[in-house]
Design a protein around this nucleic acid. Structure first.
Lengths: 233, 233
DNA sequence: CAACCCAATCGTCTTTTGCCGTATTTTGCA
DNA sequence: TGCAAAATACGGCAAAAGACGATTGGGTTG
């Protein structure tokens, strides 16, 4: 946990867009500017000032308070995020790519994984994918240093990303938003339509990326895809 | 490498003594205030002001420049440190403790490992040790978040620390200096008297810790200690 | 021991931060 | 569609940061 704080603080300090990085983490933790400002006993506009980079080089004291605050607030709310981060700390590999031999229409893909579309369904007709990548949400957010997001898209960027281990899909979607490369489709595993986070849906819509939910066990999904048309690695 | 930068930046940002943390990293990288100030095109006194915490909350711009600078300067000098850090990134375990069944006079210990004392030799007569811990220098500096230094001293603090994988012994000695708990003896492995870093010796002297060098292969050292009086774990 | 290097201290200056309060805009939703 | 909630925008002000340069204080080394 202390480790994670260091990582976040470092990311903010070295970011070329510190405000946006702070915002990203605030959103990953699901905290509004107002709640954060109340906790820190400063006005909400101050938070906004930081997130919009009005202060070009905030002091480390601010960063320190900020990081402590998002952790403390999460803890107050039950420690959901922090616990999830802690859990996904092991050393198992954290993504699994399956490349297809030929392209697959999005709608067929969704059928194969028993998925339901909750955003941008109208775009599905024009999307073909060439592979999927299955990721541990928390690991992505923890261990992806921006650039290396590229690795996720092995041969093509025309891929679906399947996020596992997510509570409501908010954090991984925020990560997708700030990442430089976008997937063709995002799938949230182990969620149904009613349990998807609203912010996640909103981000998907503004990014123009179809968002799918599925409850089908991950091993079955892997098996189905590999059997049908996969060349795994 | 980018990862390491993030870690350092985060450590500085969250440190309760940011100046000291900056100083630690500057020294680990073996850079003088003057060289750093020249690189950054600011006066040396400014560096000193930061390290003495005259500025209580330096901006992230300063931190960013600082971290970039120590890496860039190291690279100019051949990239020694950065390469070492990169190498010791694997997931092998990074320390190995051997606890003795009974105490061992320092001088006998030194004889067993074919060591030579290069600092505070006069204190050796009054030191008995109860175990040794063998550590990968770079890993220590990377992965030790201050407090957890405690783990290194399994049962007793009356231990010798043997640092492996060090170029001249500077970095691990700096780490010892800033750590809250001190070992009874420090051994630099794979170094002889002439190749020890001067700053390392100076730190040892000011800390009052005897500093030993040895060229004996690490496996032989382990074997000798375990055979004679060890209860490994 | 003078000459030098490295680091620490401090007065002083200008530029920014850090914060507020008060609009104003955007967004979600009944 | 219209209103509350959330996020932005911005002028202003006190307090700090960020920087310099002159000075002082240890060490080492010719």
């Amino acid at each position: 946990m202390e480790q994670l704080k260091v990582k976040i603080a470092g990311e903010i300090a070295l970011s070329s867009d510190a405000g946006n990085t702070m915002k990203k983490w605030r959103e990953v933790f699901g905290i509004s500017q107002i709640d954060l400002s109340e906790f820190l006993k400063i006005s909400p506009s101050t938070i906004s000032d930081y997130e919009s980079n009005r202060r070009k080089s905030p002091g480390i004291a601010v960063i320190h308070r900020f990081v402590d605050a998002i952790f403390a607030i999460d803890l107050k709310k039950g420690g959901e995020l922090v616990r999830r981060f802690a859990e996904s700390d092991g050393s198992q590999k954290y993504f699994d790519a399956i490349d297809f031999k030929k392209s697959l229409p999005a709608k067929e893909f969704i059928k194969m994984i028993d998925g339901k579309c909750v955003a941008n369904a109208e775009k599905l007709d024009s999307i073909d994918i060439f592979g999927v990548t299955i990721l541990d949400s928390m690991k992505i957010i923890l261990e992806m240093p921006y650039e290396s997001f590229i690795k996720v898209y092995s041969t093509t960027t025309q891929r679906a990303l399947i996020f596992t281990q997510t509570a409501a899909g908010r954090s991984p979607m925020v990560a997708v938003r700030v990442a430089p490369i976008k997937p063709a489709i995002v799938v949230m595993h182990d969620l149904d339509e009613s349990s998807v986070d609203k912010l996640a849906v909103k981000i998907a819509e503004s990014e123009g990326i179809p968002l799918i939910v599925t409850l089908k066990p991950i091993e079955e999904i892997k098996k189905a895809l590999k059997d049908a048309l996969g060349v795994s690695n």
